[in-house]
Design a protein around this nucleic acid. Structure first.
Lengths: 236, 236
DNA sequence: TTAATAATTGTATATTTGACAATTAATACG
DNA sequence: CGTATTAATTGTCAAATATACAATTATTAA
């Protein structure tokens, strides 16, 4: 009899939205789309979609991400559930926000689709629908928080990357400048990087050596506490 | 016309569940209730409730928490949105889990109610309904994570507390033993604690001095990076 | 050959960590 | 009243880590 109890309760729509980070070797970027339907048609938005009946939230986020980028098996983590009553003016809709870290170069090969996606510099995000700006703000914060003692930023890099690129990445995330000598000492002391024999000649005349992740160590130390917080030199 | 788009989508129930931590000076505890309705009537459960039409998730969690403990303005933070399709066998129900840190002594005065609440040692949690055990596991992890560089554990203590109590708390959270000398040095070096003239005579013959939080500093440094990670001596 | 550019590398000091045990204050008991 | 008991309080030294700071080197382009 008590089984009827749920009847009196209200249901609501549940969506997922993805905050997709990328890094081009220089700057941090976000992938946004031009919303194709009302309300707010034509405005910039995070990529999202409604959770389907047989889908977990995680699966829904993966689906949405694949739809836009063609990518699977990328770093994806739940950020926060947004749910104040009128965030979508049309109807009450909860949104489970996920943030994704992708290798921007893998993405570029895909060339999706009818969402009119564009990469924006993290510092130049246009006005967004609903509470998407809040979501991004929270995602930035969480990334800083996490990267402070988990080597999560490597998810944004291609297989081979240089130390100057890595430092650019950390400087972008923490919006600060770091000392090159101290940075490389600290990063290399983790034993996480394997120096390659080739150099990247694109960025400079001299060229910078490539490094790869030591994947075994990476997986092992991912959840260990390691202080990856860089020491800001000056606030930009 | 596109306004009809949402029509084809499915709605679901959305609930909140609260993981309520307390600390009695010795051990970490969780407040659980005996579920009063089907399904799973009579089994132990986190305190929860459905999100009402005009309520944010946060408000729903506050309401539920107040209902059970009589407390308002306590530390409450969203933990994670749980949503796999059949977590509630009766009907698809998302649950936004919140964790709360309360002063267990303030609670004890309230003596609620018809939920049959009981404090359980964190190490002796009984079998729980649905995915509530997962929620608790995640909450424990998050508490460890946060307490590592935010002084959040003070939310579990009464206004006045002793250093041995504080160390018990950290040892409980990290399930490890710490060195008294190093612990007090580290904690006191933050300048966060104000030594009182009175002693707590309950715990020992000699008595231990009370400390209070320096509230101004507390608020200021809450979001700064501070390494509160204790150095485990032995795993218990 | 030289100039320009950006990558690479080292050292000294200050701070923090971590290991380690003797002393002290208060009470209870003979 | 003295003594035993209990738990709180306090200090030092070595090791590791953080931070400040600039000269040298490899490569390309002119």
């Amino acid at each position: 009899m008590e089984l009827t109890r749920y009847v009196s309760q209200n249901r609501m729509l549940v969506a997922v939205d993805c905050i997709i980070f990328g890094f081009d070797g220089q700057d941090l970027k976000l992938l946004l789309i031009k919303r194709g339907f009302n309300p707010e048609k034509g405005r910039w938005s995070l990529m999202g979609g409604f959770v389907q009946p047989k889908e977990s939230f995680e699966n829904a986020a993966q689906r949405v991400l694949k739809q836009l980028t063609g990518l699977e098996n990328v770093y994806l983590e739940q950020l926060y559930a947004f749910g104040y009553p009128h965030r979508d003016p049309l109807e009450r809709t909860a949104s489970i926000a996920y943030f994704a870290l992708i290798d921007i170069f893998k993405y570029e090969k895909q060339l999706s689709s009818d969402f009119h996606p564009e990469w924006f510099l993290l510092k130049e995000i246009p006005p967004l629908i609903f509470d998407h700006a809040d979501m991004i703000e929270m995602a930035k914060e969480k990334l800083r928080y996490k990267a402070a003692f988990q080597p999560v930023l490597f998810e944004l890099l291609p297989e081979k990357f240089t130390l100057p690129q890595l430092q650019n990445l950390y400087e972008g995330v923490y919006e600060s400048l770091m000392d090159k000598r101290n940075f490389s000492r600290k990063i290399l002391s983790t034993g996480l990087l394997l120096k390659q024999k080739q150099k990247d000649k694109v960025g400079s005349k001299r060229g910078a050596f490539y490094y790869k992740l030591n994947n075994k160590k990476y997986r092992n130390m991912f959840n260990g506490f390691l202080n990856f917080i860089p020491y800001p030199k000056k606030l930009k």
